[in-house]
Amino acid sequence: MKDSLRRTLWISRVTFLEAVRQRFFAFLLVLSAAMVLSSVSFRVFDFGHGELKFIADFGFGGMFFFGSVLAVVMTAQLFFSEIDNKTALTLLAKPLSRAEFLLGKFFGAWAVLGVFVLVLAGLQGVVLWAREQELIAAAEQAGKIPATFSIVGLCELVLLQWLRLGVVISIVLAISALARTFLFAVVVGSLAVVAGQLQWIAQDALLRPTDSPVYAFFLWVSTRLIPNLQQFNLADALVLGSSAVEEGALIAVGVSGVAYLAAYLTLGSLIFRRREI
């Protein structure tokens, strides 16, 4: 067990190094950071909502979108590049199980996404704090109640976003273990993310009565197979305090995320075990 954990750790370490040294990671990180920083300049287009909400929506939108792109493309690339260029042959000929290889890839990619989310959330926190100070000063002069944001809520959101990206990585790894081409893994992985974002529609439809048992069964299966990725988007509630989030609800989201993550990693390992390289 100890040896197995060590091997997984070594694979994830090299996967992490490989990913952070790629231009693609740096490019998306810079692009997302630019989006977070530029949110201050675009706050005049706040569409009547509060400035802090606009800044938060803009920044978290960038984190969510580019994080998803990074999770899909980078994971598929990290997995396929080693199979395509035969590095996987060298590694899997060693006393290393395929599950350890896949888990190493997962933890390496997840660590990269952790850095991505942490850097962007840090920047987002600085931008929100700076604007908050200006708004507090202006509100005090005008005798109004200032808008504020929660640092604790921001930290909770970082964890949720990281977990959400972990679920995406595990789905893409399961798809990659089955796929024969990089393109297939990226396209199907992207569709899975879109399906996850829209899963709540199936959940709503399932609550409505229907005459077709086939349709009801299809909805039931869809809502079990596809995780609801929208449930992790609690930026407004957690960071801006627009509505109260019960601790139990947060734990339920976390447990659901971990359960999907474990299920897709198990599925990926089972598929990869039978794959001929």
């Binding site: 090299v14 190094l17 490989e18 040294r21 260029n85 035969k86 590095t87 042959l89 060298t90 000929a93 060693k94």
Partner: peptide
């Protein structure tokens, strides 16, 4: 107990 060198090996360029 086995060592293996595949044909035209490719290793992580950054290491």
């Amino acid at each position: 107990r086995t060592g293996f060198l595949p044909e035209a090996p490719y290793f992580h360029k950054f290491l």
